[in-house]
């Protein structure tokens, strides 16, 4: 069944199509939620609320562009909303001890997805959110600034620090692997 048929079925209230849609996209979306949530329970909450929003707003999908991209955007917005609700202030850290160094290593390319996920989740929330939005989701700094209600410069600096954090962590990991 194509995405279009699935969407049309869901719009007609077909429970089977709704379940199919969930089964088709939930693994990717759960991976996304795990990158944004502080723990697994929070990621499950994001996925649950996100899919409820997907079904509620499905009639607004215009069949222009990727349906997966559309769902992904909803999930990201849901995650940010939930994170905002659960923390009084965004945790945009300033880790001065992070040093950016060029590291030569072949081992890092062999890191599994789960290990990379763990690396992302080990970052402070501010770094993690900006890194996820910019690097993996492909948002621009002005869009991130609007989404997170921060300045563009903050977004840039958080990304820089996130990269340095990861660079340092990868270096450490590479040392261990050697």
């Amino acid at each position: 069944m194509t995405d279009r048929e699935l969407i049309e079925g869901c719009l007609k209230g077909d429970a089977q199509c709704e379940q199919l849609l969930y089964e088709r996209f939930s693994p990717k979306m759960f991976a996304l939620c795990l990158r944004y949530g502080r723990n697994r329970e929070e990621a499950e909450d994001i996925l649950q609320d996100g899919f409820i929003r997907v079904f509620r707003k499905l009639h607004t999908f215009k069949f222009e562009g990727s349906f997966e991209g559309w769902i992904r955007r909803i999930m990201v917005h849901t995650a940010l909303k939930l994170l905002k609700k659960s923390s009084n202030k965004n945790e945009f850290s300033n880790l001065d001890e992070v040093r950016g160094e060029k590291v030569e290593s072949r081992a890092v390319t062999n890191l599994s997805e789960q290990e990379l996920m763990d690396l992302i989740n080990s970052m402070p929330e501010g770094y993690r959110t900006v890194f996820n939005l910019y690097v993996i989701e492909g948002y621009k700094h002005n869009e991130i600034a609007e989404l997170l209600d921060i300045g563009e410069s903050t977004s840039r600096s958080q990304l820089l620090k996130a990269r340095k954090f990861l660079q340092s962590a990868l270096k450490h990991l590479q040392m261990m692997l050697i």
Binding site: A15, E18, Q19, Y22, E23, S26, P27, K28, F30, A31, L34, R35, E44, L47, Q48, F51, I52, V108, T109, L111, E113, L116, M117, I120, F131, V135, I136, R163, L166, Q167, L170
Partner: peptide, 25 residues
């Protein structure tokens, strides 16, 4: 670093808990 994370995590899939669909429904 960007391409490493984007390439590996962009299409990464993790199976959600089996009871999540019934919770959503």
């Amino acid at each position: 670093i960007d391409s490493l994370f984007r390439g590996k995590l962009g299409a990464y899939e993790v199976a959600p808990p089996p009871d999540l669909w019934s919770r959503i429904a």
